[in-house]
Amino acid sequence: MTLTRREILVALTAAGVGLATGCTGDDDPDATPTTRPTTEPSASPSATTPSPSPTAPADPTALRITGTVAEGLTVPWGIAFLADGSALVTERDTARVLAVGTGGVRTVGEVPGVDTDSGEGGLMGIVTTPDERTVIACFTSAEDNRIVAMSFDGRRLGRPRVLLDGIPRAMNHNGGRLVIGPDGLLYASTGDAGVRERAQDVDSVAGKILRMTLDGKAARGNPFDNRVWSYGHRNVEGLAFDSDGRLWASEFGDQSTDELNLIERGGNYGWPQTEGPTEARGIIGPKAWWSTDDASPAGVGIAYGTAYVAALRGQCVWAVPLAGDAARRPRRRLADEDLGRIRNVVPAPDGTLWVTTSNTDGRGDPRGGDDKILQVTVG
């Protein structure tokens, strides 16, 4: 059985495709940085050519590594697929945007103004507009976190134009994920930047999921007449839409519980009053959850009715079957591959997943070739 056109388009849009359609942070903020690789990133000949007709696997929670797309990267953070099957990839700690595909890896731009020595901040999320002529990115500057737009001619990025600035920044809890929804609007995650009270203040953009037009304005129909779509978030680093247009978010917990949440308009997700499952009045609890030792969830991708959650501290991918607005028991995958920290999981146009390691971020133990983008087959 092949994926429906809607399933393919929603999955790719969530990954930023240009089609018309943990504890107090990642881990321990005081961990001693490790040496970053100095070699240029490269594409691997083991990467396969995209196929236009991905088929539904018998077991969408079964994952196996089938190739290395690229290696020698420095903290790959965001991935935005293009219509030709290649992708734009951000490097958090270098401010570079890379084009990655069967033709190799090349730099299409280095975003000016990025603070590359800002802990969990730096150059983070990335999406393209449907015509692929504009790239939207989120980054940490010296003063704040901000969302910018840059022209893109297929080879080089133009200079950034600010869509939204003044998002509070800190050494951790910077959010940074971007996704364009089926409604054509831009959704962005922000962290509380270490000030818990911001998450419950609907007049603050910190600790939120924001909903905007592609030029950064508050979207019509938002619940508080500003950019805020949901609130009460500690640090969301994963956003993805399922095939029915529901928005899911992965969120870092504090001392006990990490979360996978189904996002509702105007929903309060509890931070800092609650963490993990709750029956508190007016609070929306998670659909799936983990201990902070088992997850520290970063990116999330959805395909084949399954949410694939990247786990930094957990050093695995959690495959979470979805059933409407419910989540089934998570399955731990790729934990035996000794990949180290996993930063992102994004569905690719050929039906595989691109999985990124994050061992050069100062908190990991780099393996040979790190950081890598791996090709993972489902089923």
Rank of each mutant, 00 (worst) to 15 (best):
P112I: 13
D153L: 13
R106Y: 13
G113N: 04
S141Q: 04
D144I: 10
C138G: 14
V108M: 04
E132I: 04
T129W: 09
G109I: 06
I136Y: 01
G119Y: 06
T129N: 12
F139M: 07
M150S: 08
V114P: 05
E110R: 14
E132M: 08
G119D: 02
P112W: 10
T116V: 15
F139P: 00
C138V: 14
A142K: 12
L123W: 02
V108W: 08
F139N: 01
E143R: 15
T134A: 06
E110Y: 00
I126T: 03
V108A: 04
S141M: 10
R133M: 14
N145K: 11
T128I: 05
E120I: 09
S118T: 12
A149G: 00
S141F: 11
N145V: 09
D115A: 05
A149M: 06
T116S: 06
N145I: 12
V111C: 07
G109P: 02
G109K: 07
A137C: 14
R146N: 02
F152M: 02
G113F: 02
V108D: 00
A149Y: 03
M124G: 03
A142D: 13
L123E: 05
V111K: 03
I147N: 07
T134D: 03
R133S: 15
A142G: 13
T116A: 07
R106T: 15
I126Y: 06
G125N: 05
S151P: 05
S151W: 03
T116P: 05
T116M: 05
R133F: 03
M150E: 03
M150D: 01
M150Y: 07
D153V: 09
G122Q: 02
N145H: 05
M124K: 15
T140R: 14
G122Y: 03
S151G: 10
T134G: 07
V111E: 06
D131F: 12
D131M: 10
M124E: 15
T129G: 02
E132T: 14
T128G: 08
A137F: 09
D131I: 07
R106C: 13
V114Y: 01
